[in-house]
């Protein structure tokens, strides 16, 4: 049985008005326990709308969402339960910080869950550790932190609910290369330590190609492709066509293929590119 599943999920904004927009069109996805899923799509492809359905924030116009086989809209309590079990961290989450201290902000979720003080304390410290926020920072005001720190505090605010599935919408947007690496590393570590399911939403294959076990490509309110990273990169030209960025290295190999060289379609890291080109150069030497 799959962990999280959608069945013919459809969502229409402004249904019944002349301005209606189909944001999701008959989406069927399956996510297994422990998956590291990347949902890729350009702005407006429906990817953010999709994840807001997965934790029950938005109610589908049509279709169902199942968490461990149970419909999340079955009852009100089930729905609240889902919000805690499927943690969703929004884009630019630092703009939602509000408490007087970092500690209290991270504790907001667990407090809403009605946990005991000791349990909350344990979770806050654990979450802070996952995102690399040192103890002495917990008593600071979140508004005094740097941009990257704020982002990590905000992510901790979702992790502290200890969700079985952690969803992050564009977690690296607006960050510089170092900040981006930090966030991706902490997500990777979090997943390895907890074994929890993680879903990352992004418009760049760059961020996720190295980690994802499963990729869902969205385009025009529909699921365009699903598969492993390798499967997806077999269609790298198609990714560019639908407005997604692929790693620079992938572009190099797309162009080499266009020139007629027999190089692999599944190149997305510098190492892969290096091996592939070495093969090519040695091959041509041998042929001579």
């Amino acid at each position: 049985m799959s962990h999280l599943q959608t069945e013919n999920l459809t969502y229409i904004y402004g249904a019944g008005t002349p301005f209606k927009i189909t944001a999701l069109d008959n989406i069927n996805i399956n996510i297994e326990k422990g998956d590291f899923v990347a949902i890729i799509g350009h702005t407006g492809s429906g990817k953010s709308t999709l994840v807001q359905h997965l934790n029950g924030l938005l109610k589908p116009t049509d279709g169902k969402i199942f968490l461990d086989g149970e419909n999340i809209h079955q009852s009100k309590s089930k729905l609240f339960d889902t919000r805690y079990r499927v943690g969703l961290c929004f884009q630019y989450p630092e703009y939602q910080l509000f408490e007087s201290t970092v500690y209290k902000d991270i504790a907001f979720g667990p407090t809403n869950m009605g946990l005991s003080v000791t349990e909350i304390d344990e979770r806050v410290r654990k979450a802070a550790k996952y995102v690399g926020i040192p103890d002495e920072m917990l008593s600071k005001s979140p508004f005094d932190l740097s941009g990257g720190e704020k982002r990590r505090v905000a992510i901790a605010g979702v992790i502290s609910m200890e969700p079985e599935i952690l969803i992050l919408d564009e977690p690296t947007s607006g960050l510089d290369p170092m900040g981006r690496e930090q966030i991706l590393d902490l997500i990777k570590n979090y997943r390895e330590t907890t074994g929890n399911t993680v879903i990352i939403v992004s418009h760049s294959m760059d961020d996720v190609a190295r980690f994802a076990t499963k990729v869902i490509v969205m385009n025009d309110a529909k699921v365009d492709l699903t598969g492993t990273v390798d499967d997806i990169f077999e269609n790298s030209t198609h990714l560019q066509d639908i407005g997604l960025s692929v790693p620079q290295i992938t572009e190099v190999f797309i162009k080499l293929r266009e020139k007629g060289y027999p190089v692999s379609e599944k190149v997305y890291t510098v190492e892969q590119g290096y091996n592939e080109l070495k093969r090519l150069f040695e091959g041509s030497v041998n042929n001579d």
């Binding site: 510089d176 290369p177 170092m178 790693p247 620079q248 290295i249 190099v252 510098v270 590119g273 290096y274 080109l277 070495k278 150069f281």
Partner: peptide, 15 residues
């Protein structure tokens, strides 16, 4: 200093 080098440069370097 915490910045990236374009992947093309990295690749060319290795080769």
């Amino acid at each position: 200093i915490g910045l990236d080098v374009p992947q093309t440069c990295q690749l060319a370097d290795m080769l």
